[in-house]
């Protein structure tokens, strides 16, 4: 008995040790980013003795907020993320509902269309979409970033699997008998039941929109419309005016929204994936 107890304590320690080592590995780049963001500009290229800077200076943060439009970039990114997440959730859950609940003639055809197009690199679609956006006057608007991201093939796949596994058909039939229409089934029965799945998809869509670089680069023009990744890129665009310290400060701050969202949503995220767990 004592033996198993000791064994248990040992393995507990062992697991903690492994997890802590990996957590440290995970945090090193964040630490290094933070350290480099609080060094005076003139020190940036000099060697640090030990792991802590000799001089501390918050000048990078000051110039991030006073010399760049960082707050505007942050605002643009957040708006774009909210809109594309919302729209993506709506479209994907509707399509997922159609695929998961109904039998219809073109179902397989549409579904393979979705899966097949996942693998085609986005770059190749840029010119036609760019032309279209330009023809309807949407270049340099939020819509030009939100609309193309609204259809996530992964999202539809996920919602289909999720709805199939967590939405009992009998429940729908019973509701139909009670006289609820098809739209009512979706809004009143399906959506509340698949909420955790929406959480998963929401984080995925948000991450996608938050970190995309190339598409916004092509679609946006004015300096005030830039998103965070594009804005930060201007800090090292000019080889004669490299602002690594400011870049570190800005990057560190821009990771915070996603980490907060994950911490708030992590239970739902993980439970959401569980219930929807994808069947091969």
């Amino acid at each position: 008995m004592l033996g198993t107890k000791r064994k248990r304590t040992l393995s507990k320690l062992g697991i903690h040790l492994i997890l802590i080592v990996y957590a440290i590995f995970t945090l090193i780049p964040f630490y290094w980013m933070a350290v480099n963001s609080i060094r005076p500009a003139g020190d940036f290229y000099s060697r640090m003795e030990g792991l802590f800077p000799d001089n501390i200076d918050f000048g990078n943060y000051i110039s991030l907020f006073s010399n760049t439009s960082f707050l505007a970039w942050l605002w643009n990114s957040i708006i774009i993320c909210i809109l594309s997440t919302f729209l993506g959730l709506l479209i994907c859950s509707m399509a997922g509902f159609a695929f998961g609940v109904y039998r219809f003639r073109l179902k397989n055809f549409f579904f393979w269309l979705v899966l097949g197009s996942v693998a085609i690199p986005e770059i190749v679609t840029i010119i036609p979409v760019f032309r279209l956006m330009s023809d309807i006057g949407m270049i340099d608007t939020y819509s030009s970033l939100v609309l193309p991201y609204a259809v996530s093939m992964f999202g539809i796949f996920l919602m289909k699997q999720y709805i199939e596994s967590s939405l009992p058909m009998e429940l729908l039939e019973a509701a139909r008998i009670d006289g609820i229409g098809e739209a009512g089934l979706f809004v009143r029965i399906a959506l509340p039941l698949v909420k955790p799945g929406l959480g998963v998809l929401g984080i995925y869509l948000w991450l996608n929109a938050w970190s995309s670089y190339f598409w916004p680069l092509i679609m946006l023009k004015s300096q005030t419309m830039l998103t965070v990744p594009l804005g930060l890129a201007t800090l090292y665009a000019d080889p004669w005016n490299l602002q690594y310290g400011v870049l570190m400060a800005g990057s560190l701050i821009s990771t915070i929204p996603i980490i907060i969202i994950f911490i708030c949503a992590q239970d739902q995220f993980i439970n959401g994936l569980t219930a929807g767990s994808v069947k091969g």
Binding site: L19, Y22, A23, T26, L27, P29, F30, L207, W210, S211, Y213, V228, P229, L232, A233, L247, S251, S254, T255, I256, P257, I258, I259, F262, I263, Q266, I270
Partner: peptide
């Protein structure tokens, strides 16, 4: 642990 392990995905690729 979960929150720490998840955090790198928040950093954009160029950064």
């Amino acid at each position: 642990y979960r929150a720490v392990f998840f955090s790198p995905i928040a950093m954009s690729l160029p950064v």
